[in-house]
């Protein structure tokens, strides 16, 4: 564990808590892509199956359980409890266009051709593109609530911090995982346009609106 990874994990945690708080306080999931949230639930459910096969640390297990459970709660809130506020008309990204190619790639490019390892690889690849339905939705509506942009900033920062963690681990531990690093870089690049808008607009007190 190094400082980059710890702050990265805390940023990820903060993102999830921010999203749940936003929904709970406003009793609404307006502006949030349910499709991205379904993908995140799928990401956690397929990645953390090693909870049953290996014990790393209490921290590791607690975080894994937290991510799985909160992602399921988020999907439940969006599709059941606050369904009336879900903006389905703007959430039109086709999930099969992500899940099918990513599934194929996980079969072809992985560390070890075993069920758990393929599911882990699938999860890493899927996470890198899981935010696309959310970004697509924002580009259709042309704006995002400020709390939603804070959520996205924390969520995007987490993988960027993990890149620093991988640089650190490469130099000091000789650790290098090509699959995680490439997918993590792709994931971070997808957020760059949003990061730019966040820094130039939201941090200056303006609402995040996209250029027409």
């Amino acid at each position: 564990m190094n400082i980059f990874r710890l702050i990265g994990d805390m940023s990820h945690l903060l993102a999830i808590v921010l999203l749940l708080l936003k929904m709970w306080k406003t009793r609404s999931c307006a502006g949030i892509s349910g499709k991205s949230q379904i993908l995140f639930a799928l990401v956690f459910a397929t990645r953390y199956l090693d909870l049953f096969t290996a014990f790393i640390s209490a921290y590791n297990s607690t975080m894994k359980l937290f991510f799985i459970s909160t992602s399921l709660v988020t999907v439940y809130l969006m599709y059941f409890k606050f369904r009336a506020t879900y903006d389905a008309n703007h959430d039109t990204f086709r999930l099969e266009f992500l899940v099918v190619p990513v599934g194929g790639l996980a079969f072809l490019v992985n560390h070890n051709f075993s069920p758990l390892e393929i599911l882990w690889t699938f999860s890493i690849y899927l996470e890198s593109v899981a935010i696309l339905p959310q970004l697509f939705m924002m580009s259709k509506t042309g704006e995002a609530e400020t709390i939603t942009s804070h959520y996205l900033f924390a969520l995007g920062s987490y993988r960027a911090l993990y890149i620093l963690n991988w640089v650190f681990r490469y130099y000091f531990e000789g650790f290098f995982d090509l699959i995680a690093v490439v997918a993590g870089c792709v994931q971070t690049i997808l957020y760059c346009d949003f990061f730019y808008l966040y820094i130039t607009k939201v941090l200056k007190g303006k609402k995040l609106s996209l250029p027409a």
């Binding site: 990645r47 090693d50 290996a54 894994k64 070890n112 758990l116 390892e117 993990y162 995982d177």
Partner: peptide, 10 residues
Amino acid sequence: RPIAEGHDEL
């Protein structure tokens, strides 16, 4: 990195 050892990153 065998899965039996688990993944230490989240």
